[in-house]
Amino acid sequence: MPDSKQVDASADAENTVLEVTLKAGKLTAAQKRWLQKGLGQAGGKLPLFDDNGREIPARTIRACIDAGWAEPWFSNPIKPDWLVCKLTPAAIEALSASQKVKKS
């Protein structure tokens, strides 16, 4: 009986790794650029603006939230339409998986 539980656990782990790799393959270039910005920030805070001072498109932010790669952090009372977000553990896994896929 313990052997079958161990096999099930390793199969689940393999499925999780495969799922993360597949999700990482679905990252668009814009999503990947935006999410990578959070890797070097305290708490994984994601920027509201790109390097050129342009606002990150709401479509990119919403897509990342829907995929589980970003989550709203807090509401901005001065600018309630701005989505202040942070990285999720799934985003960190997806970004690292996308690096592994790129190297292969």
Score class of each variant (00 low, 15 high):
A42Q: 11
V20K: 09
I92S: 00
K5D: 05
T21Q: 10
K23T: 05
Q41H: 12
D8M: 03
R59E: 05
E19Y: 03
S4L: 13
G53M: 09
E55T: 14
W73F: 11
Q36N: 15
A67L: 06
G38N: 09
R54N: 06
S10Q: 03
A13F: 14
Q41R: 12
V17K: 06
Q31L: 13
A30P: 00
K32Y: 04
L39P: 10
A9R: 10
S98H: 09
A67Y: 04
A91V: 05
G44R: 07
M1I: 06
S4Q: 14
T28P: 09
T88Y: 00
N76C: 07
M1S: 08
I78A: 15
K45P: 00
V17I: 05
A67R: 12
P47C: 13
V101C: 01
T88I: 02
P47Q: 05
P72L: 13
N15W: 06
L39T: 11
V101W: 04
E14N: 06
I56N: 00
W82Y: 05
S104H: 08
Q41M: 10
L27R: 11
G68P: 01
Q36P: 02
M1N: 06
L27E: 02
D81E: 07
E14R: 11
L18S: 15
A70Y: 07
V17R: 11
C64Y: 02
D66V: 05
G43V: 08
P57H: 07
D81Q: 07
L18M: 11
C85K: 12
K23Y: 08
K45W: 15
E19H: 12
E71G: 10
D81A: 14
P2A: 15
K23R: 14
L39G: 13
S10L: 08
D50S: 02
T28R: 15
Q99A: 12
I78T: 12
E19T: 05
V20S: 06
K26E: 08
V84H: 12
I92Q: 02
N52M: 09
L22N: 02
Q31E: 15
A29P: 02
Q41T: 15
S98Q: 11
A90R: 00
Q31C: 11
D8S: 09
V7D: 03
S104V: 11
N15V: 01
D50M: 05
V17W: 14
V84C: 09
P57T: 04
K100Q: 01
P77Q: 09
S10R: 04
K100T: 01
D12M: 08
G43S: 06
L87T: 04
W34G: 14
A91P: 03
K100S: 00
A94M: 00
A42C: 09
Q99M: 07
S96H: 13
P80E: 01
W34E: 13
D12S: 14
T28S: 14
L22R: 11
